[in-house]
Amino acid sequence: MRIFLKNMFGICTSWVPVAVMARLTGQKIILPFYHAVSDEILPHLRYSYRIRTIRQFIHDLEFFLRFYLPVNFSDLMDIINGTMQVKKPVMALSFDDGLREVHDIIAPLLIKKGIPATIFVNPAFVDNRSIFYKYKANLIVDRLDRARHPDSIYEVINSRLGTEIKKRSRMIKMILNTGYEKKDILDSIAELVDLDFSAFLKVRKPYMTVEQIRQLQMQGFQIGSHSIDHPMYSGLSLDEQIKQTKESLEWIRKAFNLNYSFFAFPFTDENVRKDFFDAVFNPDKPVANLVCGTAGLKKTASPFHIQRVPLEDSRLRARLFISGEYLYYMLKGIAGRNVRKF
């Protein structure tokens, strides 16, 4: 419903200048993010994100350049601190999961247009050592869609999932919704449909290598943490949340010799308690300089806990979706619901 409303609001406000929407909301910082860009169908992303084609992505970039000043996350911190003054609304672009398309397709386009960006990676996946469990689910469903399998296979899948689902579409949804705590089930289902994740990693190489990330770093891109292996934080204990955050940031700082610590929640920061943020922003020993959620335009308790806008939630062009984001923020504000509460 939330995405539907934003889409509708974007279409309805298409005639209103973006500068006016930014001024009315008072939100002069916007943080769009993506995962990948490709003209090909990416089977591991196929059911999770609405991936932009190269042409669509270029159109988005042209919109951002027309109405916003592109900055990196270090600039963003200076703006928040008041040590950098800007007259124009700013845009800080980022990309999640450290996918190969960032190196092969996205970075050259950004360099050509002079747009900085931050790349959030998961140490567990760098160098194609392993694969995100949601991407495993996507590959399984892609295999089920592309090949016929006997009813007996679906009966065994039911037993692995602990369900008695007869409707195939519901079973597909159950596979895609498999959670972090049950991710090992996906490995057993993959065997049933003759799917080898190790071979996929070796042949397809969906993630960037350390060397490729260093190349991007040398070209001016910033690197941040996206947790160790992409769990849903609301399903973890506080200790595990802090461990995922701290250890991933330490790995990234060491691997890429960083003097900053940027962290982006995997999935969402929804239902993450205040205790976590107190620990991360501990003035005596801070874990991160900047922490990002994915709730779109929304106020937060800390200026260094910011929310990004997931452009792949919609098939609309960035111009329309961002307009819808502004109007959604204003209407939520009337109800007092545009603040991220703990």
Rank of each mutant, 00 (worst) to 15 (best):
G82K: 11
S130M: 00
H149L: 02
I322E: 07
I157W: 06
R46H: 09
N338R: 05
L110A: 04
A124K: 02
L201V: 01
L290G: 01
M232E: 15
I29A: 10
V126E: 00
H226I: 03
G82L: 01
G26M: 05
S74N: 08
I175F: 04
G296R: 10
L316G: 11
C292I: 14
L236W: 12
S314H: 05
M330F: 14
V203S: 15
K332I: 06
G333E: 05
R23S: 14
V280P: 01
M84D: 09
F120T: 10
F197P: 08
Y68M: 12
R148Q: 08
Y49F: 09
N282R: 07
A301N: 12
K205I: 02
D196G: 07
I119E: 03
T294M: 05
P310Q: 03
P206D: 08
A190D: 08
G324E: 06
N158F: 00
N338G: 07
I242Q: 01
I115A: 01
T118A: 02
F265I: 13
S14K: 15
A264F: 06
L69S: 08
L311R: 04
C12A: 12
L195W: 05
Q217L: 12
Y180S: 03
I165D: 02
L61Y: 08
R52F: 00
F304T: 11
M77S: 05
D313W: 06
I213D: 08
V20H: 14
Q241R: 11
D127V: 07
D145T: 00
A117H: 00
D151L: 14
R160N: 04
S225W: 01
K243H: 04
S152D: 09
N72H: 09
R66Y: 03
F304C: 08
F265L: 14
F277V: 02
P303C: 00
R204N: 15
